[in-house]
């Protein structure tokens, strides 16, 4: 499988994603510059974390209009796999590729720590290798991860299995204290109706090697690779 890691000015997790895909998972991976207007030749595009365009105005608001995004939108519409992590998730929301929007964390603090998230569905290409209800330990690092979506859209998302991850306690229970940022219904990750576009606030690329404290993030990459019949 060929992966492309999109590099926006201000992205800071692009190299981490590249390293995990290349060195840990042995995949073919290249960088995709934000100024390019073609993403041909890729099977999956990763929008990495960071602070694209300084997060000015709103997170992702400017990045969403960078030249590469038209190509990313077309790529997603054609069924290409797109993974937005943290800032990448925020960009996908602003671009309308995923429902909802991000607000400041309720505690107004930038939170950088390991959290537990529960796999809500295994019917997506991104979670097919996980078990339903499985708890993953993956770090978050954000100031705007307070996911907001109107009730009607949320009900529609739930009907279509688009809520992919929720923040939870280590035992998998949903408790208010296990929701780090105030996100609606403790949502940590969502996909589009077709399932080929996933956005998640936790960083799977920071939890892809046991030496770094957790390799739970691997299941996201491995699910996709298995779904696409790629060899690891």
């Amino acid at each position: 499988m060929r992966f492309g890691v999109v590099v926006f000015p201000g992205a800071n997790c692009d190299h981490d994603c590249h390293y995990v895909l290349d060195t840990v998972l042995g995949q073919d991976v290249g960088y995709v510059w934000h100024g390019t207007t073609s993403v041909s030749g890729y099977d999956c595009l990763v929008l990495p974390g960071g602070f694209a365009y300084g997060d000015y105005l709103r997170t992702g608001a400017i990045a969403r209009f960078s030249p590469v995004m038209k190509a990313v939108e077309k790529f997603a519409d054609d069924g290409g796999y797109v993974l937005g992590i943290c800032n990448g998730f925020q960009i996908l929301c602003e671009a309308g590729l995923l429902p909802g929007a991000m607000m400041r964390n309720t505690g107004l603090k930038f939170i950088c720590k390991f959290v537990d998230i529960r796999v809500e569905t295994t019917s997506t290409p991104w979670t097919s290798a996980a078990a339903k209800g499985e708890v993953l330990s993956i770090p978050i690092a954000h100031n705007e991860g307070n996911y907001q979506v109107d009730t009607m859209t949320l009900e529609d998302m739930k009907r279509h299995g688009q809520v992919v991850f929720r923040y939870c306690s280590p035992d998998g229970a949903l408790r208010s204290e296990s929701n780090p940022n105030g996100a609606t219904e403790a949502i940590a990750g969502v996909c589009n109706r077709e399932g080929n576009v996933l956005g998640m606030m936790p960083h799977p690329e920071r939890a892809s090697e046991a030496e770094l404290g957790s390799s739970d993030g691997l299941v996201v990459w491995r699910s996709l690779l298995a779904h696409c019949g790629a060899t690891v």
Partner: peptide, 8 residues
């Protein structure tokens, strides 16, 4: 288009 996000 840009200045406001109509969702929020």
């Amino acid at each position: 288009k840009l200045l406001a996000n109509p969702i929020i």
